[in-house]
Write a protein that binds this DNA or RNA. Structure first.
Lengths: 234, 234
DNA sequence: ATGCTATTGTCTCACTCTGTTACAATAGTA
DNA sequence: TACTATTGTAACAGAGTGAGACAATAGCAT
């Protein structure tokens, strides 16, 4: 990266990703905190000049999560001028000991393509990048204030996820390969943010014909042991 | 516009719009043809540096259709490198008597944010722009080959429209304010590309409680006259 | 062993929604 | 006055869903 402009990236274009995970209890997303600023943001990045947009996002997620195969979906492109707030980026650069003049291209206006990802919470150890202090999981209902329009992005991502809940196999991506019916239900409830009827949920899931039933799992609790399921083909 | 770069536009960023209309029979979209090239494309444009993305699209549609209030929805951002085909733009510029060297920025790679619009077919007289020979309605099922990935855009726009058919009031935007139940059904059939059951469709529409029934319309045909409806609040 | 408790798997019932068919009403025409 | 094409709506069956009920059972206390 030279000091004159952004040699390898398309100017004015960024992406941000809302990375969902499921802790076993709650729906979480990955949030980064920038060094010494108290500023929180979604993980994002830029697109190289010779790179497909989608692949830039996959590359960024791989660097962030270490995962190769990630369920990923583009949901909206944010292009308001109100998201141009050069002071924010200047603050971040200064706090990291960079000269903002050398990163002038980063202070310009950006249009950001937003994606959401579903990943297996337990398989990931989030990696901070150069500018960020930490990357950590936050409960979607208890996020810190986010910079720019990142709060709006999260809201829209969750809405899209809810809208697609019937059509996409959300559980397949947020759960380990083997799980109980209760765990599956908890994922749906976490995404929707409301409780579901147990028997109706079980009936519906089984009627889809995509679950494979395995042996029982003895939880050590004093009650009937649940069956374990996996998605057909795994 | 000077000869050095694109002073007023964000570089590398474009938008394209799939403009749907309903002829009374079929679902149509607006396609432009470039002067003397035989090249067909979706109407599109660029975003000014101080302009919201959404407003750039609204501005473009107003110039193209003369309509102020248009139902508009962003559905996907296309960012593959394969859409960078400078020969195509060069051909268009040359055919219009322009010097490609003066429009070098247009030959560069573009990421395009795609929108679809629903408009009232009968209220519009499409306006060609500087580079285009004509703007005309084409049946969605009988489009000419389109440049770049515009064919893919149309396909995805239609898919999105079909997916949202229940949630959005598609009829409200594609029909005149007053219409018969049969006309409403024809819109739905045109969007879905398949016939619907008459009585079930009527029952469902009426049960939504958003239609206001008016006097009958005497069509001059030898059969019972249908009621006329409008959407509640119009 | 026996009984207790929390949870699971499944059934039933009522209600809604949808696909399909049927039929009466009716505007114009012969 | 009869006929035709279309419209408005009822009727019925089957699928899907919300709610509640109940038997089965894994571990625990006795």
């Amino acid at each position: 990266m030279t000091s004159s402009g952004s040699p390898n990236y398309l100017p004015h274009l960024a992406y941000d990703s809302v990375i969902f995970g499921f802790s076993g209890e709650k729906l979480k997303i990955l949030i980064m905190e920038y060094h010494n600023t108290g500023l929180f943001a979604l993980p994002g990045g830029f697109v190289e000049r010779g790179e497909n947009l989608n692949e830039a996002v996959i590359r960024g997620l791989r660097e962030r999560t270490g995962l190769e195969k990630i369920y990923l979906e583009q949901f909206y492109t944010f292009g308001d001028t109100a998201r141009w707030q050069p002071e924010v980026m200047r603050t971040i650069l200064l706090a990291n000991g960079h000269d903002p003049a050398q990163f002038a291209w980063m202070l310009d206006r950006f249009v950001s393509v937003a994606y959401y990802a579903l990943i297996n919470y337990s398989e990931v150890t989030p990696q901070p990048d150069v500018l960020s202090d930490s990357v950590a999981w936050y409960d979607v209902d208890a996020l810190p204030p986010l910079i720019l329009d990142h709060g709006e992005m999260v809201k829209k991502a969750r809405q899209t996820l809810q809208d697609n809940l019937d059509r996409k196999l959300v559980g397949m991506n947020l759960l380990p390969t083997h799980f109980t019916m209760k765990e599956l239900q908890q994922v749906y409830e976490a995404v929707l943010g409301r409780p579901l009827q147990r028997s109706a949920f079980q009936r519906k899931m089984l009627s889809l014909g995509i679950l494979k039933r395995h042996e029982k799992r003895f939880t050590g609790k004093a009650h009937k042991a649940p069956f374990v399921y996996s998605f057909e083909g795994e």
